[in-house]
Amino acid sequence: MSSLTRTLPASWFCNPAMYQLERRAVFFKSWHFLGPVTRFQDRSSPVVYEIAQVILIVENLSEASEDINTDGIVVRSKDNSVSIRSHITPSGLVFATLSLDTPPFSEFFKGLEELTNKVDFTKLPHRRSISYEGRFNWKTMIDGFQECLHCQYTHPTFSKFYPPTFYSVQNHSNFSEHVVDPTKDSDGLFLYFYPICTLNVYGGGMSSFRSLPSTNPGVTRMEFDYYHSGTEEEFEEYFKFVRQVAMEDFELCEVAQANMERGIYGQGILNPEKERGVAFYQQQVRKAVRAQFEKEKALRLPEGLAKTKPLSHRCYKQPQLVA
Rank of each mutant, 00 (worst) to 15 (best):
V75S: 00
I55L: 10
S77H: 02
D79P: 12
A25G: 05
D67K: 12
I68Y: 02
V47E: 04
E22F: 11
N80E: 15
S44Y: 12
E66F: 15
D71K: 13
N69I: 11
I84F: 12
G35F: 02
V74E: 07
S62P: 01
A52E: 00
V48D: 02
P36T: 14
Q53H: 14
T38V: 03
V26P: 04
Q41K: 08
R43Y: 14
S65D: 05
F28D: 13
S83V: 15
M18H: 07
P36S: 05
S77Q: 07
I55G: 01
I84A: 09
F40P: 00
I55R: 14
T70C: 01
L61V: 08
S44T: 09
I68T: 10
R43K: 05
S83F: 15
S65R: 07
G72N: 03
R85F: 10
F33Q: 04
S45V: 13
N60C: 08
D67E: 15
L34T: 01
E63D: 05
S77A: 15
R39G: 10
I73E: 01
S81Q: 12
T38W: 02
D71I: 07
S30G: 13
Q41S: 12
V58E: 04
D71N: 06
N80P: 06
F27Q: 00
P46N: 07
K78P: 06
R39K: 10
V82R: 04
D71A: 05
D67I: 08
M18Y: 11
D42T: 13
R24H: 11
P46Q: 04
A52W: 00
R76W: 01
V74M: 10
R85P: 06
P46G: 05
S83N: 13
N80A: 14
L61N: 14
F28E: 14
E59M: 07
I84P: 01
I68W: 01
N80S: 11
N69G: 10
A25V: 00
V82Y: 00
S30E: 10
Q20G: 05
S45E: 15
E63H: 15
V74Y: 03
Y49R: 00
Q41H: 11
S30C: 02
T70I: 14
E50Q: 13
N69C: 12
D42K: 11
Y19C: 02
Q53K: 09
F27A: 05
E66Y: 14
I51D: 04
N69T: 15
E22K: 07
V47W: 03
Y49M: 05
I73D: 06
A25H: 04
V75D: 03
G35K: 01
Q20L: 14
Y49H: 05
I68G: 00
P46Y: 11
L34D: 06
R23F: 08
R76N: 01
I55T: 13
R24Y: 07
V75A: 00
R43I: 15
H32G: 08
S45G: 03
K78C: 13
I68N: 07
V47G: 04
S44V: 09
R24E: 12
Q53T: 10
S45F: 09
I57T: 08
V75L: 03
